[in-house]
């Protein structure tokens, strides 16, 4: 199963990059989102998928079943990363909408200098 997720993550990376390399705005946005998702998955798997239950502890419990628990460190990292990628996605969407409105072009390669905007 983990093998499957790893391969899928690679596929997500490839798809994200493929979309990023297009000249269309819409595909660029899709690429950014896809790439962000791939990175988060990468973090989760690279951090090591261990344990079989979520990381909840109880104050009363003296002997914690640590070995059964998932690793909280990658999860905390991914949480941060997800939120930041939300910021990036929102900004990219609005920015490209703005660029399209002002420059009226849908070709990234025509945006090579600031004079036309």
């Amino acid at each position: 199963m983990i093998i499957g997720i790893s391969v899928l993550t690679g596929f997500l990376f490839a798809a994200g990059l493929y979309l990023l390399l297009h000249k269309s705005f819409m595909k660029l946005i899709a690429g950014v989102i896809m790439f962000g998702n791939a990175c988060n998955l990468f973090l989760l798997i690279a951090g090591g998928l261990v344990g079989s239950q979520p990381v909840f502890v109880s104050g009363n419990d003296e002997a914690l079943p640590i070995d059964n628990m998932a690793d909280p460190v990658p999860q905390a990292f991914i949480l941060t990363a997800i939120v930041i990628s939300l910021g990036v996605q929102a900004f990219v969407i609005v920015l490209l909408k703005r660029v399209y409105q002002t420059s009226n072009t849908n070709d990234l390669d025509t945006l090579t200098n600031t004079d036309d905007v």
Partner: peptide, 28 residues
Amino acid sequence: TFGIIMALVLLSLLQYEPNPAMKDFYIQ
């Protein structure tokens, strides 16, 4: 190519047992 390489990197990362020191610290 990029996707394949990233998948390969992940697969080799899976071969390693993560060090549980941080995990244990935070949980405890």
